[in-house]
């Protein structure tokens, strides 16, 4: 019985140890990984010592559904971050806010009616593992991968499993149409999460992966020499991500302070240097700080995020039928 008592005591200690409250507590919902959140919050802690940020983490989709479910009684104050398409679909749930610093971020990276602002922008790249090419020339363009010799050699993530993978597939569809997309779907190994794609390339399972720039760059920066990033000559696709203040936020002042902090040059620079999140601000020298090319030196194929969001069901269904047919 002693043991039981001990266990009960431990259980009670556990439940007491959780909630600490302060005047300026703000709840951050975040879909970013723990390291990224850590980088940002460490700086914000110094910038705004009175601000106690509690975080709730989860996938973007799950957090958005949660915000919607809590609409009557919001428990979160700020959500950081979601793709612009996803944010558009939930726009009724957000509180407009025009930060003093808004002008530092160009208009295409700002949401309608100040509902959100871009905090970082993903660039879709080809992540190449040179050791695994085995005589094949490194691909230079998306259409290189449409050639039959690439069959089974490169990976792409199932667009129904990942929002960023959807941006990629949508871009390919807009640029190369149904036929181009069909060839990619025929040749690719389709993975069930973004992580599987870039980890698979890093570990040598696939020679090439169509994936996120930051994720590929982590392996380069970590010292894996065989990993190279290729920005396709036909143009990369952008997938900007933004943050919002949740409508009805309990601590609106705290939410604004956190929002300003996350947008600040200091935080965005740190996120670039430590986590390779490409900033949306124009006053940061990306090439100098990180070894990634500056955005204006890259060829970009423009994709309308709103349209991408609107055509989601249809494009995913098309992809599924093309992928099934092989």
């Amino acid at each position: 019985m002693k043991l039981l008592k001990f266990v009960m005591a431990a259980a009670m200690a556990g439940s007491v140890g959780v909630g600490t409250t302060q005047a300026q507590t703000v709840v951050l919902y975040s879909s970013n990984n723990t390291e990224t959140i850590e980088t940002a919050l460490n700086i914000i802690k110094k910038q705004k010592p009175g601000l106690n940020v509690q975080q709730v983490t989860g996938g973007t989709g799950a957090l958005m559904k949660r915000i919607q479910a809590e609409a009557q009684n919001p428990r979160g104050d700020v959500m950081w971050s979601g793709g612009f398409g996803t944010l558009g679909a939930y726009r009724d749930q957000f509180q407009a806010y025009n930060p003093a610093d808004a002008a530092s971020t160009p208009a295409p990276f700002r949401g309608p009616n100040n509902l959100w602002i871009g905090t970082n922008v993903h660039v879709m790249v080809m992540m190449v593992n040179e050791k695994q090419l085995k005589g094949l020339p490194s691909p230079k363009s998306w259409s290189d991968l449409m050639d039959a010799k690439w069959k089974g050699k490169f990976a792409i993530t199932d667009p129904s499993k990942s929002a960023t993978a959807y941006s990629l597939v949508y871009g390919l569809y807009k640029q190369f149409g149904r036929d181009g997309l069909a060839k990619i779907a025929q040749n690719a190994v389709i993975t069930s999460s973004s992580g599987t794609t870039y980890k698979g390339v890093a570990s040598g399972e696939y020679a090439v992966g169509l994936t996120l720039e930051y994720a590929a760059q982590e392996f380069v920066a970590g010292g894996q020499k065989e990993i190279k990033l290729v920005y396709p000559s036909e143009g990369s696709y952008l997938a900007p991500e933004g943050m919002v203040i949740i409508k009805g936020a309990k601590n609106l002042d705290g939410a604004k302070a956190l929002y300003d902090g996350l947008l600040s040059k200091e935080v965005q620079e740190a996120l670039l240097v430590k986590n390779f999140r490409r900033p949306t601000r124009t006053d940061i020298d990306v090439a100098k700080l990180s070894g990634l090319p500056a955005l204006n030196t890259l060829k970009i194929f423009d994709v309308n995020q709103e349209a991408a969001s609107a055509e989601y069901e249809q494009v995913v269904a098309l992809w599924n039928s093309l992928a099934k047919g092989k």
Partner: peptide
């Protein structure tokens, strides 16, 4: 020791 995803 690790550097991001890479184990040293």
């Amino acid at each position: 020791e690790t550097s991001g995803p890479v184990m040293k």
